[in-house]
């Protein structure tokens, strides 16, 4: 018998619909309560001011620097070459054709606008978002590499490897990320940069200390995920590989790790999501990622309510797209 092309209509109990209705009532009730509360403090919602922090049109005005007369206008592509005769002699000015405000024979005075150019520019919010994505990707890649080695070291029989990995994992997992960022930037960063300065090399920008802090932080958690993945593979797999004469590294590479990695992937995705959210702490060492960018916008626009909701929403979009 063929199954019908559409699934049968599911009969749900009344409590399901009551629950669903209650959910939406609660959700919109909360939003309404928030709105009413902001009315009480005379907060003016200005959502229309928000888009400019994503993208905006930048106006560039070309001004003349001396008094004189435009004696010629010659086209060159989408630009115009103006000849300006002034007391200092003749001068060629290269201005965009679009938005040209002067013509041949015009008298101009210092400070006059010759042409106005408009460009689309990426706003602070998108710049911050992009930096957050970049930092997260780099820290993730480094974190996985560190975590893979630390995880393998964690199950090694050699105390050098096992204790090293254990110390690393316990230190990182046992202290706050914020403190680790401070240590990377203010302690290690100061040391590195001072030594580099003494040797006459360029300074490493704060971004890289931030990335290093995130990568070592993620690495410790990835190490535990890797360890759990390796230990979840049945002992018989290792015994079978070893009984065939494979060495420990060979058994690891050809038999254990390929199987472990399949089990590691789902928790690893969860770890990256945490990493994206944790990167919001990097603003503290002057890395202008999404949270820091939002804070700067709030400072100038005073639209704190809108901005922080937008900020949270952008993080949600990032993490949600990863959890799919």
């Amino acid at each position: 018998m063929r199954s019908p092309s559409t699934p049968p209509i599911l009969k749900r109990p009344t409590s399901y619909y009551v629950g669903a209705a209650a959910f939406f009532v609660a959700l919109f009730g909360l939003l309404a309560a928030l709105y009413v509360a902001t009315m009480q403090v005379d907060y003016v919602w200005r959502w229309n001011r928000i888009p400019q922090y994503f993208v905006y049109r930048q106006k560039i005005e070309t001004r003349v620097e001396a008094d004189g007369e435009i004696t010629a206008v010659a086209p060159r592509g989408d630009r115009r070459l103006l000849t300006l005769r002034s007391e200092e002699g003749e001068q060629i000015l290269d201005v965009p054709a679009e938005g040209l405000r002067v013509a041949k024979g015009d008298s101009v005075y210092a400070g006059d606008v010759l042409a106005v150019e408009e460009h689309w520019r990426v706003g602070l919010l998108i710049q911050g978002l992009w930096l957050t994505i970049q930092v997260s990707i780099i820290a993730t890649v480094l974190g996985v590499v560190i975590g893979l080695f630390a995880g393998i070291a964690r199950v090694s029989k050699n105390p050098l490897f096992r204790w090293s990995a254990l110390t690393y994992v316990e230190f990182i997992r046992g202290s706050p990320l914020l403190v680790q960022i401070f240590i990377w930037y203010f302690v290690l960063g100061t040391l590195f940069n001072s030594i580099l300065a003494k040797q006459g090399f360029q300074q490493i920008p704060p971004l890289w200390y931030g990335v290093a802090a995130m990568a070592t932080f993620a690495g410790a958690y990835v190490a535990e995920i890797v360890r759990a993945g390796i230990q979840s593979i049945h002992r018989g797999q290792n015994e079978a590989a070893r009984s065939l004469g494979m060495s420990y590294p060979q058994a690891m590479i050809h038999v254990i790790l390929p199987q472990a990695i399949r089990r590691i992937l789902p928790p690893l995705a969860g770890e990256f999501i945490s990493l994206i959210k944790d990167s919001s702490l990097l603003g503290i060492i002057a890395i202008r990622e999404l949270t820091k960018a939002t804070r700067e916008i709030v400072t100038v626009s005073l639209q704190a309510f809108e901005m922080w909701f937008i900020c949270a929403l952008l993080y949600l979009i990032l993490t949600f797209s990863l959890s799919m």
Partner: peptide
């Protein structure tokens, strides 16, 4: 020991084939 084991085949109760 790896040299010895290469000369000694072993078959397990639970097969232990490599599933991947």
């Amino acid at each position: 020991i790896n040299r010895v084991r290469a000369e000694v085949g072993m078959v397990f109760q639970s097969f232990n084939l490599f599933p991947h």
